[in-house]
């Protein structure tokens, strides 16, 4: 049996020998990129000013408004799950924040996997450690593979009818049929699309974030609409969650915030009304460099009456999972501590 140090020395030596970038050329690249980003920031500021003055962007560019989905009525809130980030083994980190913990939960999720209940609330869909998208029946523990992960990060979202997955790929929205594995794509405006999209409750549209802001994409027409421009290009607005009962999308607004020599990001949980374009601040979700800590996350309750927000470290607010009304009122702390991967189970009659 080889000793670990011998393996480590050999692997590190090879890594160092082969990681030899031309530093002077890359320095020239860096100056170029920096100049381009400064220009992008100035353009974004100008766009924000135009938005304030005319308000034309949200109204004028909305060529294909999303109609509010029909209110389900019969959907109730089941268990709200989260992962306690202080527990290394995800299989032991599940916590029921509201309700009773199901008999079976994923034991082999990939780091940073996202979890999603199916519309019936009887299965959880997630990415496992072998880059597969799996479906687990929480009552029986039965698992099946839906598809392979589309990329190494595996930030894909399953449609409400569980017939397709969607993910983002730089400057495209990608869709894969789970029936036949066929992939299609929709070119999106701008670049830097990041993270898993959120499906609209009726499965006709997706909300997603990119470097330029929060977008809504209508799947049939391919129409892409910038709903909320990013005031701080480079910060990420995700994750996103689409209200199950009306045309609103919850997301995070990030602001760079210096702290002890590091540039942290301060997060505010927010929601945008897709009909009017008005943005409501819901909750200060803390700030972090997000080093070994999850960025905040959020999800709507299945009945649409609450949002669950897992906050991160903060100077003013104890980290925890907070339940807040859709207008930002009455925040209630449901759990103390740092949590990731919120998933709220729908119960249907």
């Amino acid at each position: 049996m080889t000793d670990l140090d011998t393996l480590a020395r050999a692997a590190t030596r090879e890594l160092l020998e082969r990681s030899a970038p031309d530093a002077h050329t890359r320095y020239a690249d860096l100056r170029h990129v920096r100049a381009r980003r400064r220009t992008t920031a100035l353009v974004a500021i100008a766009a924000s000013v135009a938005l304030v003055i005319g308000g034309w962007q949200l109204n004028g560019s909305r060529t294909d408004p999303i109609e509010p989905a029909p209110r389900p009525g019969s959907v109730r809130n089941g268990v709200l799950l989260g992962l306690d980030v202080h527990v290394d083994n995800p299989a032991e980190a599940w916590r029921a924040i509201r309700g009773a913990q199901p008999a079976y939960l994923p034991e082999d999720p990939a780091a940073h996997a996202q979890y999603q209940f199916t519309a019936s609330g009887t299965e959880v869909v997630y990415a496992d450690g072998q880059a597969r998208i799996m479906e687990l029946a929480i009552a029986t523990g039965t698992q099946r593979q839906l598809t392979r992960c589309p990329d190494d990060v595996c930030a894909a979202a399953v449609s409400p009818d569980a017939r397709a997955i969607a993910w983002t790929d730089g400057d495209h929205v990608r869709l894969r049929s789970l029936a036949n594995g066929a992939d299609t794509s929709i070119p999106a405006a701008g670049d830097g699309l990041v993270g898993a999209p959120a499906w609209s409750p009726d499965g006709t549209a997706l909300a997603l974030v990119g470097a330029d802001g929060l977008y809504v994409v209508t799947i049939d027409s391919g129409n892409v609409r910038l709903v909320v421009p990013n005031r701080n290009p480079g910060t990420v607005l995700g994750p996103v969650s689409w209200s199950p009962t009306n045309g609103a999308v919850a997301f995070f607004i990030g602001e760079p915030r210096p702290f002890k020599g590091y540039e942290e990001t301060a997060f505010t949980a927010s929601a945008v009304d897709l009909t009017t374009g008005s943005v409501t601040s819901l909750l200060d979700a803390g700030q972090c460099f997000c080093v070994g800590l999850p960025a905040p996350t959020l999800t709507w309750s299945p009945d649409g009456t609450l949002l669950a927000v897992a906050t991160t470290t903060s100077n003013t607010l104890e980290p925890g999972v907070y339940l807040v009304d859709p207008d930002g009122s009455d925040p209630e702390r449901a759990k103390i501590g740092l949590y990731a991967a919120l998933a709220w189970q729908p119960l249907t009659d």
Binding site: R37, V153, G170, D171, V236
Partner: peptide, 18 residues
């Protein structure tokens, strides 16, 4: 190691400015 930051870098790498 940060998912969102790394993802952003990855996407920038895809649409490399330089």
């Amino acid at each position: 190691v940060s998912q969102f930051r790394r993802r952003l870098v990855e996407l920038r790498a895809t649409a490399r400015l330089a």
